[in-house]
């Protein structure tokens, strides 16, 4: 199928629209005939990353690129950055605000969940911003027969 590429803006603290990028990507993956299990895996990764930008950053963008062989996603935000990536990767470690917690987020499971579902994950961060690159490989088994 034709490659699919989209950029989406993510606003700081916009919890009402959080999940839109995951939802639109899910729709595209369904259209491309991928299996439910595969779609679930990708959706979890994108949703968690999207929530992270909403609850932790000053806002940012997500770039999604889909081909027949892979899905690549890059989330880039405007800061304030992650103090310790090692701590952030630990299941249960959280720096979430009360706003995030009241809305059901901030369990400290976001990044560990993302790592578990993606085939490649590269996370870099400074005070100027955080960049999260994710890749999901698509094999022939991931298409509905």
């Amino acid at each position: 199928m034709e490659p699919f590429a989209r950029d989406y803006n993510i606003e700081k603290h916009d919890l009402t629209n959080a999940g839109t990028i995951a939802s639109l990507t899910k729709r595209e993956l369904k259209k491309r005939g991928l299996t439910r299990d595969f779609i679930k895996k990708v959706t979890i990764g994108i949703y968690e990353a999207e929530i992270n930008v909403v609850i932790h950053s000053y806002g940012g963008i997500a770039a999604i690129s889909i081909t027949d062989d892979s899905i690549e996603v890059t989330f880039t935000d405007k800061g304030p950055g992650i103090n310790s990536i090692d701590d952030a990767m630990m299941a249960g470690f959280s720096t979430a605000s009360s706003l995030a917690i009241e809305n059901g987020f901030g369990a400290g499971m976001g990044l560990p969940n993302i790592k578990a579902v993606s085939d490649k994950m590269v996370l870099t961060s400074s005070k100027e911003g955080t960049r999260l690159y994710l890749k999901f490989d698509i094999s022939s088994d991931n298409y509905e027969s």
């Binding site: 999940g19 679930k40 949703y47 929530i51 809305n103 400290g108 969940n113």
Partner: peptide, 27 residues
């Protein structure tokens, strides 16, 4: 906690929660 729901709930499950929040429906 929605990250747990995302990670562990399966298709066609019933979700029981006290979280009165629109993000529950997103998930």
């Amino acid at each position: 906690l929605l990250s747990h729901v995302m990670g562990f709930a399966s298709e066609k499950n019933i979700l029981i929660t006290v979280l009165n929040n629109i993000n529950v429906l997103g998930v």
